[in-house]
Nucleic acid binder design. Structure first.
Lengths: 100, 100
DNA sequence: TAAAAGTACTTTTATTTTCAAAGTTAATAA
DNA sequence: TTATTAACTTTGAAAATAAAAGTACTTTTA
């Protein structure tokens, strides 16, 4: 039986975090501000979700300066990649089971 | 562009509530206890999620007695049906966009 | 037959999560 | 030099989640 719901990733059930990963899947790296604009989130809100992904080790963080401005870039970790795939697969299984 | 994430239903992002609806899609009705057993949830937890679905008018509630025992059954409302479909469609779109 | 245990919930309380406002530090503009 | 902007981080309040406790019976057991 093994119901597909149990394969869902709690961390990725929140759409903001799923979106962040889906952006990082297709972009080698992405920075804080771009994420903020793309997702239209407040600074604090984005920072909180980022922190969750970071704590899970789903993303890697790189801080640097571009000229005189600080810049924080994120990349998907291998763990994050796996987790994302697994979650998407679970969603797919749920949909399939639904469509019959 | 119209990104599929924006079509997700906040209420259905929680897997318990998505599961409840997915059960009610294939079962004309289902009662509290059966849901509790199927989903392996505490009474309070299930009741809270049910209340959210009820407030959204996604489910209809019918209370009766079976012999001497109270029995609460739930059915999917038309609104719930629509919402479920829309959410699943959004998930499908997300997956598709991901698979290319 | 009285007390204990069980059923089917509901209500309350505690914890966790989410979100936005305010704060920080440094640079640039007026 | 004061104000504004940039790029975050921290704080605190509100909302969501989950489990424990409570309620109102009914059934079982000593």
């Amino acid at each position: 039986m093994s119901n597909p719901f149990s394969k869902l990733d709690k961390v990725l059930e929140h759409s903001v975090r799923l979106q962040v990963l889906s952006i990082l899947v297709v972009n080698e790296s992405y920075d804080f501000n771009s994420l903020k604009e793309t997702l239209e989130l407040s600074d604090g809100n984005l920072a909180t979700h980022i922190k969750v992904l970071e704590k899970e080790k789903y993303i890697l963080i790189n801080k640097s300066f571009i000229g005189k401005k600080p810049n924080t870039r994120y990349r998907l970790s291998e763990k994050g990649k796996q987790a994302f795939k697994k979650h998407i697969d679970a969603l797919e299984a749920i949909i399939k089971s639904q469509k019959q």
